[in-house]
């Protein structure tokens, strides 16, 4: 396990109280007059913690069940840690600012944008990338359905979509098309594979949607 001190329990998507005070800084925090006492106490606690960075620090990530020991500047994102400091390039960079989903990985069972999470914040949690899905070269149902339904063209967005759909099926094994759209709302595809992604997700959940394509002879 990581040697790094465990901070407050992670509440994904919400600020922890401590991080909030840290980000406020002294001036703003003391200006919050309502609870001057507790603010001061909080600040003291924060300041007594060891400040890390800006130089590289040891970071341990648990990716696809294996430990990755890295030396990273604290400002390195989880996506950069994977793509630039390990050989795990399955998660892609499409925008580096939380708008395309090509970088989607699972933190526990939750799909997140790896470009928008610092690597140091992703320690002590199970990270799954697209490389970690297929065991012994056997595609997962989701991957197989993407392949069968041709839910990919250039394939650059595909790892992200595969992760989003995988997370959906973990939470909801019997989704409908709207559930799939909702789960993939944060993923972008420029090649236009969207209709096929819906079909693939449903197929992975056991519902076969037939293609409506018709071939008609000219003569």
């Amino acid at each position: 396990m990581s040697r790094m001190k465990k901070t407050e329990p992670e509440n994904f998507g919400a600020f922890s109280r401590r991080n909030f005070f840290k980000s406020l800084g002294t001036v703003a925090a003391t200006a919050a007059t309502a609870q001057v006492q507790s603010v001061a106490a909080e600040l003291e606690k924060v300041n007594s913690e060891k400040i890390i960075g800006p130089n590289a620090v040891p970071v341990t990530l648990t990716v696809n069940g294996e430990k990755l020991q890295l030396l990273l500047e604290p400002r390195v994102t989880l996506l950069d840690a994977l793509r630039n400091y390990s050989s795990l390039t399955g998660a892609k960079e499409g925008c580096d600012r939380a708008t395309c989903g090509a970088c989607t990985v699972l933190l526990g069972d939750t799909p997140i944008y790896a470009c928008s999470k610092l690597a140091i914040e992703a320690q002590d949690q199970e990270i799954t990338t697209v490389e970690g899905l297929a065991k012994n070269d056997k595609l997962t149902k989701v991957q197989q359905a993407f392949l069968d339904k041709d839910a990919l063209q250039c394939g650059y967005c595909t790892p992200g979509f595969v992760m989003s759909v995988t997370a959906l099926l973990k939470k909801n094994p019997h989704p409908n098309a709207d559930d799939v759209k909702h789960a993939c709302a944060g993923n972008t595809c420029r090649c236009g594979t969207h209709p096929r992604i819906i079909q693939a997700a449903l197929k992975a959940a056991g519902v076969e949607v037939a293609s409506k394509t018709e071939v008609i002879d000219y003569v």
Binding site: G94, C95, R97, T99, C100, V180, K181, H182, C184, A185, N187, T188, C189, R190, G192, H194, P195, I197, I198, K212, T213, E214, V215, I216, D217, Y218
Partner: peptide
């Protein structure tokens, strides 16, 4: 960037039916 340059997302795409003329 993608937050202000809007591309179609999965919820926008319509029902697409393809007819291929075989020649």
């Amino acid at each position: 960037n993608f937050e202000t340059y809007k591309l179609p997302g999965i919820a926008d795409v319509p029902d697409i039916e393809v007819v291929l003329i075989n020649m």
